[in-house]
Design a protein around this nucleic acid. Structure first.
Length: 548
RNA sequence: GGCCCGUUGGUGAAGUGGUUGAACACACAUGCCUUUCACGCAUGCAUUCAUGGGUUCAAAUCCCGUACGGGUCACCA
């Protein structure tokens, strides 16, 4: 039996050989310094905030260098595969406007010359490369059962040796002859294909990570699995093949991968591939019981990008927050260039943190408040409406019915030098503006200092019949309230009130609060003058008269 | 346990041997402004850079040890 026949026996269904694929996917023709990056999520459930984070970084790095960024779905683990997960990833990326040059449209359709961009559709490619390794005696089949592997691990633990399949532990299967292998294959015993590592634990390798700098490791000597028993590759092998064929220059990924660097270097070397640059991004963390840990899909709702959509935190705010985590100088840049597109910021490896940041919801909401305070009322309304259409149907129909009133409301103290910063999330807006439209029904009024009903009615009736005039400008409007105060024994001048509070029943602020609460049902609102203008005198009278 | 990595305030961080009072932002506190709230403004918030020991005229910045924290050791990615 020749080695070719041997390899064919192990992998009988391979359509093409290595040379075919190397020709099919030629080198990219890009200018010097152009980076090819990628984001390679696995469809195991919801889209993780860390995936979005990495996507934004990868996309920026590629495009600011005149390079290419692509999306590749890593679905080599069928056990963890979740049905809609691929669509979710593609949709999220679209929603957040991360501009990939090459990507899957769905599992069978792709944009880009290096397709398919879904690993489960590339099985023949991986097998072609494994076959080549088999022929070169750089890989071998392994028939180990779960129990046998467990036994090895236990022995290693007992002897306090390194755990893994290497050296003497692998020597028995490494030494199998082609005939022995043939017997087992014909007997139908399942097998995986392992790397025949030439490395030694005593040698050192060095990787210069773009973010973490120089890292030294012992060389890999593990005969890791290349192809699982179902013929599908492991992450490690798929990574080496795909990122080579697809021309990735910089592998950006989470730093949970740092420790497998020796394996990857070994793989690239034995495959005869140049080792790409690596950039391991620190993961976003959470604190629990005083301890930090990676933000978790199971425990932390904010790990899911859908969480931000549901809450109605604008996409732009999330991106800004992620960029402040990515580059320490972003925040200052953004402060100085509030009107620029965030894509004008130059993301660089130099300003990336080497250790993971704690997720800070307060900071995100602050960013969101700032963002929402700066956009026009129309834009705000449109974003709010498209949010409500998905997450709050009732509110969305109100938004459409009372469009003009709502835009006017959102516009109060906006588009001025110091805009209000009332809103951080679309989900909290309904409660904040509901008194402005529709049937006003207030169950409990939050009266403040003045809470005697007769006095309250007296103030309101006097005000609405004698003083309020819709034609007044804001200054006149406030002067009228002062006149009202003078008439009823309240201080119209705060300084005088502070000097001699005992001379007055209260002050302008107290009186204004009565009016505010009566008209809106709450003590905290935007500028009352604007609110009253929007509501209109008829509605104001109605609300005042409905008080009992 | 082995192998990697990290440690500046409540949080994100600037800082890479000698003009740092240890920037800036969020949060917090107080005050001012004010028709409420928010905004804005002002002030405060690490006498000290996990810790012990070096090197040096000089260290948050360089070296070694210790502690603590994180990652990883799968036919998961």
């Amino acid at each position: 039996m020749t080695r070719e026949e041997y390899a064919h026996m192990l992998l009988p269904n391979v359509l093409h050989d290595r040379a075919y694929y190397e020709k099919k996917y030629p080198k990219r023709n890009l200018k010097e310094g152009a980076m090819v990056t990628r984001i390679a999520p696995s469809p195991t459930g919801f889209v993780h905030i860390g995936t979005l984070y990495q996507a934004i970084v990868a996309e920026r790095l590629a495009h600011e260098s005149g390079g290419v960024c692509f999306l590749r779905i890593e679905d080599t683990d069928q056990k963890r595969l979740v049905v809609d997960a691929i669509d979710q990833i593609i949709n999220s990326v679209k929603e957040y406007e991360v501009n990939f040059d090459e990507y899957p449209i769905d599992i069978n359709h792709y944009v880009g010359d290096y397709a398919p961009y879904v690993q489960s559709k590339r099985v023949d490619i991986y097998q072609a490369f494994v076959k080549d390794l088999l022929i070169k005696d750089l890989a071998y089949p392994s028939f180990l059962t779960e129990e046998e592997k467990k036994e090895i691990t236990e022995k290693q633990q007992k002897r306090k040796q390194r755990i893994g399949y290497y050296g003497i532990w692998a020597s028995k299967e490494r030494a199998m002859t082609m005939e022995e292998v043939k017997e087992k294959v014909e007997a139908g015993i399942p097998y995986v294909i392992r790397l025949k590592s030439k490395g030694s634990f005593d040698n050192k390798i060095v990787v210069n990570d773009c973010i973490k700098g120089r890292i030294e490791f012992p060389e890999n000597d593990m005969d890791i699995v290349l192809l699982k028993s179902d013929g599908i590759p492991t992450y490690h092998f798929a990574h080496a093949v795909d990122d080579t064929l697809m021309g990735t220059t910089h592998v950006t990924r989470g730093d949970e991968w740092v420790s497998s660097l020796p394996v990857h270097v070994d793989l690239f070397n034995t495959l005869g591939f140049p080792v790409p640059h690596y950039a391991h991004l620190a993961t976003i963390q959470k604190e629990e019981d005083g301890k930090r840990r990676k933000i978790s899909k199971r425990k932390d709702p904010e790990a899911n990008v859908a969480y931000y959509s549901e809450k109605g935190i604008p996409k732009e705010a999330v991106k800004i927050y992620l960029l402040t985590l990515a580059n320490s100088n972003f925040e200052e840049w953004f402060l100085n260039n509030p009107d620029k597109n965030i894509n004008d910021f130059y993301v660089s490896f130099d300003n990336m943190s080497t250790s993971g940041a704690l997720f800070d919801m307060e900071k995100l909401l602050n960013i969101s408040r700032n963002y929402l305070s700066r956009i026009s009322a129309e834009k705000f309304y449109n974003e709010l409406l498209s949010w409500a259409k998905i997450y709050d149907e009732e509110f969305s129909s109100d938004l459409e019915t009372y469009k003009d009133i709502i835009i006017a409301t959102l516009n109060i103290e906006r588009e001025c030098e110091k805009p209000r910063k009332d809103y951080a999330m679309f989900s909290e807006i309904k409660n904040n503006i509901s008194y402005m439209y529709g049937e006003f029904a207030c169950e409990t009024y939050e009266w403040q200092k003045i809470n005697d009903m007769d006095e309250i009615k007296n103030i309101l009736q006097t005000y609405i019949t004698k003083y309020y005039d819709e034609k007044d400008n804001q200054e006149d409007w406030f002067n009228k309230i002062k006149l009202l105060c003078d008439e009823l024994g309240y201080a119209s001048n705060m300084k005088e009130y502070k000097k001699n509070p005992e001379n007055f029943k209260g002050n302008v602020a107290d009186v204004s609060t009565v009016i505010r609460v009566a008209l809106t049902g709450r003590s905290k609102t935007p500028n009352l003058y604007d609110i009253m203008l929007i509501l209109g005198k008829e509605e104001l009278e109605k609300r005042i008269n409905s008080l009992s």
